[in-house]
Computed example of a mutant assay.
Amino acid sequence: MDMATSTIIFIIAAFALGAVTIMKRDSLPPKMRRGLALISLVMIAFAFFLIVYALFTMGEGTL
């Protein structure tokens, strides 16, 4: 698996975890809810960083 595929899988997984955490927040215990929310927030922030980094380095190898 190359780096781009791994990055795309991570981005999809991060956003899916965030979506599931938001949709199921009423059925989660309060301690687990807080932990999942923090983990989701960190993963989504890192996914945004990876997206921005990929956009900045998109045309770098063509010179």
Results as ranks from 00 to 15, higher is better:
Ala37Gly: 15
Tyr53Phe: 05
Ile39Gln: 04
Asp26Ser: 14
Gly18Asn: 08
Thr57His: 11
Thr62Glu: 13
Gly35Val: 12
Thr21Glu: 09
Ser40Tyr: 05
Pro30Phe: 13
Leu17His: 06
Val52Phe: 03
Ile22Gln: 09
Ile11Phe: 04
Gly61Asp: 08
Met1Ile: 06
Met3Lys: 12
Gly35Tyr: 07
Thr7Val: 04
Phe49Lys: 06
Leu17Ile: 04
Leu41Cys: 12
Ile44Thr: 05
Ile44Leu: 08
Ala54Met: 05
Ile51Glu: 06
Ile51His: 11
Phe48Trp: 08
Met58Ala: 15
Leu28Met: 13
Gly18Thr: 01
Val20Phe: 13
Leu38Tyr: 09
Val52Trp: 01
Leu41Ala: 15
Pro29Glu: 14
Phe56Ile: 13
Glu60Asn: 12
Thr57Glu: 09
Phe49Val: 08
Thr21Phe: 02
Arg33Phe: 07
Met58Asp: 12
Met1Gln: 08
Met32Asn: 08
Ala45Tyr: 01
Asp2Phe: 03
Phe48Arg: 00
Met1Pro: 05
Phe49Ser: 05
Leu38Gln: 07
Met3Glu: 09
Ile12Tyr: 06
Arg25His: 13
Ala45Thr: 07
Pro30Tyr: 15
Leu41Lys: 03
Val52Met: 11
Thr57Asn: 14
Thr62Arg: 14
Val42His: 01
Val20Met: 10
Ile39His: 08
Ala19Thr: 12
Leu36Trp: 06
Ile9Asn: 01
Phe48Met: 04
Gly59Ser: 06
Ala14Phe: 08
Ser40Val: 00
Pro30Cys: 06
Phe48Lys: 00
Gly59Ile: 03
Ile8Ser: 03
Leu17Gly: 05
Ile51Asp: 09
Thr57Cys: 03
Ile22Leu: 11
Phe46Arg: 10
Ile11Met: 04
Thr5Glu: 07
Pro30Trp: 15
Met3Gln: 10
Leu17Lys: 01
Phe56Asn: 14
Phe15Ile: 05
Val52Arg: 08
Glu60Tyr: 04
Glu60Met: 06
Ala45Trp: 01
Ile12Arg: 09
Glu60Ile: 04
